[in-house]
Design a protein around this nucleic acid. Structure first.
Lengths: 181, 181
DNA sequence: ACCTGAACACCGTTCAAGT
DNA sequence: ACCTGAACACCGTTCAAGT
């Protein structure tokens, strides 16, 4: 059973971290503990590492993003749905910078399944819709697509749309491009 | 005029840094100074920041890469030249990890002109060759391409070839794809 | 003119001691 | 059962003191 002060501390840490990360993406763990009014030990008791804390904070955002897939697929063509969803994702990565880092696994460090898995699943659904409709090449890989998305986020804001258009053209079936423009 | 010990120190720092980075990409500055047998102050006197040191080290590699453009363009089609050159670049980024970070500018931090400029120039030449031959879309931007290259480097090694194929297809002129496969 | 190395203000993380 | 906060082993960088 959870002590009430423990429950309160957890909430205060989340609130402090959310606000701190909104202002500065690489606020230190000690500073977050300080802002939350707890010792660093308490912070680490709740969130054993920096990455875990960040993923917890952006969990809602990720769930929101995943929740939009159905409606997009119902109201737009597969490629257009993919285009809109990706721009939404990149926008989220841009304003919540650490989210981008969390979703862009470097070559060898494995990613937390809790958010990476569902995001890959969402992308899979979007790509599959396009494959079923015959407008996206059958060998398109969701992980490759997410990886390329990381490049969009790192680029200057005004470059992400043209870069995405280029990627979408590359995803189109040969002789069957020009779907997305 | 340069004192002889100063010249020696500079050489020893470079040698130590080169070896240290080859083993561990994020060796600390203090450790490099220690390996070179100099005080940290001397290290910083020669290379005022971490980034400057890294760029100095990989300058040769960058020059080598740039030097291959002419021959590639002379012996292969523009798209194939671009493909080979990019795989070479990504391979360099992978084995010299910090080089990749140095060439993948995050959204707002400007990059050292000394290496970023020439690399962009090399990509421009490769893209222009394809544009002149009518096999690469006229609006392809070198900076976008370099940015996407960063995603290849961050991906698992066996994914970079298929991802590059996808990008190259996206770069192809509409109705004129399948050039690179 | 150049070097040394102690020092500064941090960092992420741990853990003995408390309540 | 949970919290505190001093402490650890670092980090990049600076600068007074030396030669």
């Amino acid at each position: 059973m959870v002590r009430s002060d423990a429950r309160e501390n957890r909430a205060r840490i989340l609130a402090a971290a959310r606000q701190a990360f909104a202002e500065d993406d690489d606020t230190s763990m000690n500073r977050i503990a300080q802002l939350a009014g707890v010792g660093p030990g308490t912070l680490y008791r709740n969130y054993p590492s920096r990455e875990v804390l960040i993923l917890e904070i952006y969990q809602e955002e990720i769930e929101r993003l995943i929740g939009t897939v159905d409606e997009l697929l119902a109201t737009a063509t597969p490629v257009e749905a993919l285009r809109r969803w990706t721009l939404d994702l990149v926008d989220g990565m841009r304003t919540k910078h650490s989210l981008g880092a969390a979703l862009s696994p470097d070559a060898h460090q494995s990613m937390a399944e809790k958010s990476y898995g569902p995001v890959i699943a969402a992308i899979t659904r979007l790509l599959d819709a396009g494959k079923a409709a015959g407008v996206i090449r059958a060998d398109a890989e969701p992980v490759d697509f997410l990886q390329l998305t990381g490049a969009l986020w790192r680029a200057a804001p005004d470059r992400s749309e043209p870069m995405l258009a280029l990627i979408l053209d590359g995803l189109g079936k040969n002789g069957d491009v020009s779907v997305s423009r």
